[in-house]
Amino acid sequence: MTARNQPRKGISLRAREALHGYGFIMIWVIGFLLFTLIPLLETLHYSFNQVVVSATSINLTFVDWANYSRALFTDPSFIELLIGYTIETMVAVPIVLIFAMIIALFLNLKFKLKGFFRVIFFLPIVITSGPVIRELTAQGAASAPGIANLPAVADFLAELPRAVRSPIEYLLTSFILILWFSGVQILIYLASLQKIDKSIYEAAAIDGASSWEIFWKIILPSLSTATMINAIYTIVTLSHFSENKVIQYIYNQTYNMQGGIGYASALAFIYFAVMIAMMGIIYLLLMQWTKRKSR
């Protein structure tokens, strides 16, 4: 180590290390500027303008907040889609988390054919793509088996007020799809389940704790980080999914004569804000829950 501790060429060791470190991440920093930050700022700029794209140039006319106020106050379909998206995400996130946790607990056990069941439960990671999902939903193959098509259920739903009905309808018609979004989350839960020290279980068992208590007092608290990661991951995947109706609406607006790119950019930022707000809410809820558990 003595050789390394001596500064060479007048640069301190610390600075040298930092320089080499920057060398490794430089390509990412440039990429971040070129492909994320600059386009993001440009989109923000567009959102305050009327944008007309011609074959050779892009003409901007400053319109202040007009795009935003149109989206929030005069466009009837956008707000409706946005509310639908919020409800659907809020319904889907807890289901994905609970389902992923249960499957991960199962797959963490020792039993024969475990490999086979793992293959089944990770399969949707591989095949979940927009067009495939669209085809499957169009055929009604994604609904909760046997329940969604019963006439009694339809009658029951018709009686309910709209605010209650739409989440339930969503749940029934896309139940399996919601489950299909839990592949990666199962993996994350499994990984953190395997990090729990086995001797804690034994100690708890010797002290007379039932398995149920072990779950609530040991397993669940140690899954809190994974739960947070999974919640964020689920929101992001659902929100970026190309079959998402809000995304499709924004995409269609981009090519619309009336409004065009400027309006679509404003929509994109409103959408982004809603998504961040949802993450914030879920984050706070989970934090609260973790705090209460640790007390």
Binding site: F35, T36, I38, P39, L40, E42, T43, Y46, I232, V236, S239, H240, I247, I250, Y251, T254, I261, A264, S265, A268, F269, Y271, F272, M275, I276, M279
Partner: peptide, 10 residues
């Protein structure tokens, strides 16, 4: 986290 449509147009 940034949705793709916030950067894709530019």
């Amino acid at each position: 986290v940034i949705p793709p449509q916030n950067t894709v147009i530019p």
